[in-house]
């Protein structure tokens, strides 16, 4: 079996299985856990509204912090947007999903996708270097932080190289791209990448908590 056959076949299949099992296990487990009881009276009625509000206000930093954290936020927005658009709106990726779910959807032009992919990769690498050089970030960073950045960057790098037919032979680059995606899938449920599912619920919980106390965040 060639590397490409392995990467497109068993590697991807098992990685997807691990991804599904891991993600749903964790989501199920977290959802069922007990929440702390509320021991005081709500200062503001309908705290769930606060929860919903906080889910979205946190997409941009609080005015008082803006100057300090603007770079981080903008960089984050750029590469996340690029990631979503490249993964779900590139012709060939849509073919990939069509093979699984049976239907496709319209795609963005290749030129746009390549540009966004390249920019996202550049931003990821910049953030990684910043994390390594900035003393505060270095102090608070764990293996998970570094590994997640690298593992997310690899599919971008291998995908761009395969598409442009640079680097190793096309069939090898394509195999490496599939393998890097498999690695990402396997790493996903057990790392900070799981924030994909926890970020909005946790903001909701935080919003509700503060609203009860009368604080709008």
């Amino acid at each position: 079996m060639s590397l490409l056959d392995f990467a497109r076949g068993p590697a991807l299949e098992w990685a997807a299985v691990v991804f599904m099992v891991g993600m749903l296990w964790r989501i199920g487990g977290l959802t069922l856990m007990l929440r702390n009881k509320v021991l005081s009276k709500d200062r503001t009625p309908e705290p769930w509204k606060g929860g919903l509000r906080t889910m979205f206000t946190r997409f941009s930093p609080a005015p008082v912090f803006r100057r300090k954290v603007a770079f981080q936020y903008i960089a984050g927005w750029v590469w996340h947007l690029g990631f979503v658009l490249v993964v779900f709106f590139f012709q060939l990726h849509i073919q990939f999903f069509k093979g699984i779910v049976g239907f496709g959807w319209p795609a963005l032009p290749n030129g746009m996708i390549v540009a966004m992919g390249a920019v996202s990769l550049a931003v990821l690498i910049t953030l990684l270097i910043r994390r390594m050089l900035n003393p505060v970030l270095r102090m608070i960073s764990s293996f998970d932080d570094y590994a997640s950045t690298v593992i997310t960057a690899l599919p971008f790098a291998t995908g761009l190289m395969a598409f442009a037919h640079i680097g190793l032979a096309y069939e090898t680059m394509l195999a490496l791209h599939f393998l890097s995606v498999a690695l990402l899938l396997v790493w996903f449920p057990f790392s900070k990448l799981f924030h994909v599912f926890t970020v909005l619920p946790s903001r909701y919980a935080l919003g509700v908590k503060f609203w009860r106390k009368g604080v709008k965040v």
């Binding site: 056959d5 497109r8 076949g9 068993p10 991807l12 299949e13 997807a16 299985v17 599904m20 099992v21 891991g22 993600m23 749903l24 296990w25 964790r26 989501i27 199920g28 487990g29 977290l30 959802t31 069922l32 856990m33 060939l92 990726h93 073919q95 990939f96 069509k98 093979g99 699984i100 779910v101 049976g102 394509l174 599939f178």
Partner: peptide, 27 residues
Amino acid sequence: LSQGTEIGGKTLIAAGVAGIAGGVAAG
């Protein structure tokens, strides 16, 4: 070439069910 050869809806649904089962048990 951009499609996986062995990945399929059925396998993923089965994996999903297993995951939910595990999650519920763990929960």
